[in-house]
Design a protein around this nucleic acid. Structure first.
Lengths: 210, 210
DNA sequence: AACCTTTGTCACCATACGGTGACATGTAGC
DNA sequence: GCTACATGTCACCGTATGGTGACAAAGGTT
């Protein structure tokens, strides 16, 4: 009897520990990046013994898999097209709005930005999860656009989207720790307005209002 | 006398060892990426004792500094504008050609691609070196363009360049280990022609021939 | 009460890392 | 010849990592 020495954090409740581990994973990714993620660091952050991680999740990859399922790394189609009336918008304006919403959605997800940054270096579990959701959502969006607007055959929509989307992803990830690039600031929303305006112009140039 | 046991690689020639270390650094970066770079790995790759690295370069960072000076991570202005006749080209075509040359120059430099990928994660010595040369060369190029073409005031050239350049950098880095993205292939030069054509169209849309 | 399972803790292993001190070896100057 | 120095080799330290086995406490079941 007696003792009850150690300050058990989970108080014999595995669900609490699991939740803490998952939360800690997010915290580490956002603060230090995926490169500094490890079982030891994760256990430290979660305030639990690393043995529990192995017991509950198998290994670090198991934690990542579960983490990926518990979060939405990407916008949904509804996020992007919500309240958007195809009849009241020119196709040009519609594409511009979609691109702006994409940028806003990405920039507001620090975890996603960290994964985007890391996937250029290593093909981790989280990178693969992000890749999958991104591909499916992108296809959904393309389908949605294709059903509502007809685009000039001359414009290669996938290629243009890939280009502008890549630029947004790259600059959003880069803007986390660099404030200015090529004479263009990346930090504040006001800075981003300049970039988004340029995107507007590029879209307007390549797909004129019908 | 006698013995001459160990297979001394540098044969008492520090210059040889130094050169081998620098070459090994490039090899590791291109093959494994900056994340897997370390003193031990570097010594292994160079086939020398790691003590020599500390003696000759101070530390790993010293090797990187010297490596950065010994290589050109970026195009020079001359690389890009060589043989380009401002009088014979529309401003549209000129910008398109410059962008294509930029892409070709980046894609042909595996070390640069590895650093570009890594700088999203960590601000390493090599990333800083790359950043500096990139900024200065970009300014040079902007000046060159400004002296020879007049651009519509409506178009924000820095922002547009940043956007398209970022996309090219991102896709080039990404194309190293992923073959298709958003339905667009990234591997071969033929795949890239599709991307470059889209860039042509975007440029043509935003800055019409004078 | 006695038992069994779950939960949490601790000690330990092998490995790799960055970094340093001590020593053997060859070469140049005198 | 001898000394002095630059060069190369090896052994070692402290620390961190991923991973595992053994054990103490708490509950529930019978």
């Amino acid at each position: 009897m007696v003792t009850k020495v150690a300050g058990t954090i989970g108080a014999r409740n595995p669900a609490v520990v699991r939740a803490r581990v998952l939360a800690a994973l997010g915290a580490i990714i956002e603060r230090d990046g995926l490169a500094r993620l490890g079982v030891n660091a994760l256990a430290r952050e979660a305030g639990c013994d690393k043995v529990l991680i192995y017991r509950y999740f198998g290994d670090l990859d198991g934690v990542c898999r579960e983490f990926a399922q518990s979060r939405d790394f990407w916008w949904t189609l509804d996020d992007l097209v919500q309240g958007l009336d195809p009849a009241g918008l020119s196709r040009t304006r519609a594409l511009q709005v979609l691109m702006r919403r994409h940028a806003a959605a990405i920039r507001s997800r620090p975890t996603t930005l960290a994964i985007l940054a890391h996937e250029l270096t290593e093909r981790s579990t989280l990178a693969i999860a992000l890749e999958e959701v991104r591909e499916t959502r992108t296809l959904e969006l393309f389908a949605w656009i294709g059903e509502r607007f007809d685009l000039p055959a001359a414009v290669d929509l996938p290629a243009v989207s890939l280009l502008l989307g890549s630029a947004v992803n790259y600059l959003a990830a880069r803007g986390r720790d660099v404030s200015v690039m090529g004479g263009v600031a990346l930090r504040s929303d006001a800075d981003w307005e300049r970039i988004l305006s340029a995107i507007d112009a590029l879209i307007a140039g390549v797909v004129p209002p019908q």
